[in-house]
Design a protein around this nucleic acid. Structure first.
Length: 557
RNA sequence: AGACCCAUAGUGUAACGGUAGCACACCAGAUUUUGGUUCUGUUCGUCAAGGUUCGAAUCCUUGUGGGUCUACCA
């Protein structure tokens, strides 16, 4: 008996979606949804930006809306076009396409200037000759109200004249600012007559030397939202205290009422997202660059082999709410494995080799063994791998004196060589130090994979490569960059103290011959080991692979 | 110290006054020519104390804990 009209549970909405759906119900902005992603072009995009990207783009997509890319370039001292290019590239790689051409806050400098003039006309802004120190003192403290600047009540005419001369370049840097006249006694520090324009005789990456005054964030961001008619301006929690100012400017300027909504930024255990701290890792050579595979930058994660869909899924699963959070690294790894399990081709690579000689295998004989490329994908087909008398297996796939539930090789034990024969360990050869240097094994000729009539049941299956056919490859094994889940959260210790000195280990591995053609960026599963990505340093003569993430291992525990 | 924000399994996130769910992690088992994948199951939670109510994770009060704010950065 089936219930024909059973409706499926509607998936829960996050608080932003609830606000949007209510706005749509109320006919606000005729149901239009338009978001924006507003990075400052002074650094590389990282995992935190990925979350902001997903929230902004996917929320808009869900409601048939649009998303602008707007570079928030109001401070020429730190911003440049190289960063712009990298940001655009990273966003496209993550899988998002913004509406039209990318936009710049600097496109609105003239309009912003006119907004300021309008404020002055309304008696709501004034030129202040106070020094930075004096202004800071006037601000007061959170517990004590501020004091008014002696320049607060200049005439509109004088303010107009002075502001025009600021623009004209009549004054040196730091000598004057334009301040909004709000409320020096407000409990919200941001409302205590915030500086909205400062003098900076500096070359801007787009407007060149057209301007020597530049708007502050609070007088650029919200106004840019408004100019672009952004309906929902999604930002992180620390801007909560800016919202009354955001709304105040919209009201006083009588411009399009964009609405700012704050959500908690995503923190990920063992990762940091501070631009300054990330920069230090690069400049002090803790990593090789912004795209070092250990870096939490999109460039680094891309090089590491994290697929864009996995990063997007990770951001979705982390959820969107308004409370502080630290997402476990394991969730990211889960999303990466989930994607890579579906998509990556399998191959066999021995990272820590131990030689095996099949004593009863005809010397010089080579057989082509057929191996599935991806058991999760029947369409991925098969490849062949040469099998010969001398092989390499993983050193930890052999033990002298194994525990009873060890399924691999040991003296007198059998093991299946994946997609090849079952072998029996007859003899252990040791070097002068007593270390195992070689295994002499015999194979069961009737146990060939696919036509096994031996009747032998080997509990273990291990990977292997043919010694004379294997190619050497550099394999870079990565671990988390920090040894503490929240390296920047210790009052008494610097985050650098938690730098993981074992975060990179380089080994020379023996890989199956097919890997000779691996292209940079291509991902593989090295059977029983993990997912790996061909590095940008890789060449056919010197292949290089990065460990993306290891396979789950329920044995080593 | 003041203002504002936040508090649900280990970690995240739902439940919108009416059975506290889901995901990851963990543990156990089944399957497996990857100790992978897949499947099944177990354990574990409403910060505290009052109040309102037939009924509170949800509303109110107080407390506790955490976060944000005092840049001519964004």
């Amino acid at each position: 008996m089936t219930t024909s009209t059973e409706t499926k549970e509607k998936e829960p909405l996050n608080f932003i979606e609830e606000i949007i759906e209510e706005d749509i119900r109320n006919g606000k902005h005729a149901g239009r949804v338009h978001t924006r992603f507003p990075p400052e072009p002074n650094g590389f995009l990282h995992i935190g930006h990925a979350k902001a990207l997903v929230v902004n783009f996917e929320t808009a997509q869900k409601y048939g809306g649009k998303t602008n890319l707007r570079l928030d370039d109001t401070n020429p001292s730190t911003e440049n076009t190289d960063y712009v290019d990298n940001i655009k590239n990273d966003i496209r790689w993550l899988g998002f396409e913004w509406e039209g051409e990318e936009l710049y806050a600097s496109d609105y400098f003239e309009q912003l200037y006119q907004f300021a003039v309008k404020l002055i006309h309304k008696g709501l802004a004034y030129v202040d000759d106070s020094t930075p120190e004096e202004i800071a003192a006037q601000k007061g403290t959170p517990t004590a109200p501020g004091t008014e600047s002696p320049f607060r009540n200049r005439s509109i005419e004088e303010n107009l004249d002075l502001f025009a001369r600021m623009r004209a370049g009549d004054f040196p840097d730091g000598s004057r600012v334009l301040r909004a006249k709000v409320d020096m006694a407000s409990p919200n520090m941001h409302m205590r007559d915030p500086v909205i324009y400062r003098i900076k005789h500096e070359h801007h990456h787009r407007t060149g030397d057209d301007w020597c005054i530049y708007p502050m964030y609070d007088f650029a961001h919200g106004q840019s939202d408004s100019i672009e008619e952004i309906t929902h301006s999604l930002c992180s929690l620390e801007f909560r205290h800016h919202r009354p100012l955001y709304d105040w400017f919209i009201e006083k300027l009588e411009i399009f009422p964009s609405r700012q909504i704050e959500f908690a930024r995503m923190n990920v255990a063992y990762m940091i997202t501070s631009k300054r701290r990330l920069m230090k890792l690069v400049t002090d050579n803790y990593v090789t660059g912004w795209d070092d595979p250990r870096m939490p930058t999109l460039a680094g994660m891309r090089r590491r082999g994290y697929p864009a869909p996995a990063i997007r899924e990770f951001c979705r699963r982390a959820g969107t709410a308004r409370r502080d959070n630290v997402i476990e690294y394991e969730l990211l790894e889960f999303c990466v494995r989930e994607e890579l399990n579906r998509t990556s081709l399998r191959s066999m690579v021995v990272l820590d080799p131990l030689k095996v000689v099949i004593t009863n295998y005809p010397e010089g004989q080579v057989e082509d063994m057929s191996i599935e490329n991806n058991p999760e994908d029947p369409n991925a087909g098969h490849r062949t791998m040469p099998f010969s008398q001398e092989l390499y297996i993983e050193r930890d796939d052999y033990m002298d004196d194994p525990p009873k539930n060890y399924h691999r090789l040991a003296p007198g034990k059998d093991v299946r060589l994946k997609s090849a024969y079952i072998i029996h360990c007859d003899e252990v050869i040791r070097d002068a130090n007593g270390e195992v240097s070689e295994l002499h094994c015999s194979y069961y000729p009737d146990s060939r994979s696919g036509s096994d009539t031996s009747g032998i049941k080997a509990k273990g299956v291990i990977h292997w490569v043919s010694a004379p056919h294997a190619i050497q490859a550099e394999v870079r094994l990565y671990d988390r960059l920090f040894t503490d889940p929240e390296p920047t959260n210790h009052e008494d210790r610097d985050y650098i103290e938690f730098y993981n000195t074992n975060s990179l280990q380089v080994v020379t591995a023996f890989a199956e011959p097919s890997l000779k053609n691996a292209q940079p960026g291509q991902t593989f599963q090295f059977l029983r080991k993990g997912y790996f990505c061909t590095d940008t340093d890789s060449t056919p003569a010197n292949p290089v692979f990065n460990l993306t993430v290891n396979l789950k291992d329920s044995w080593s525990k």
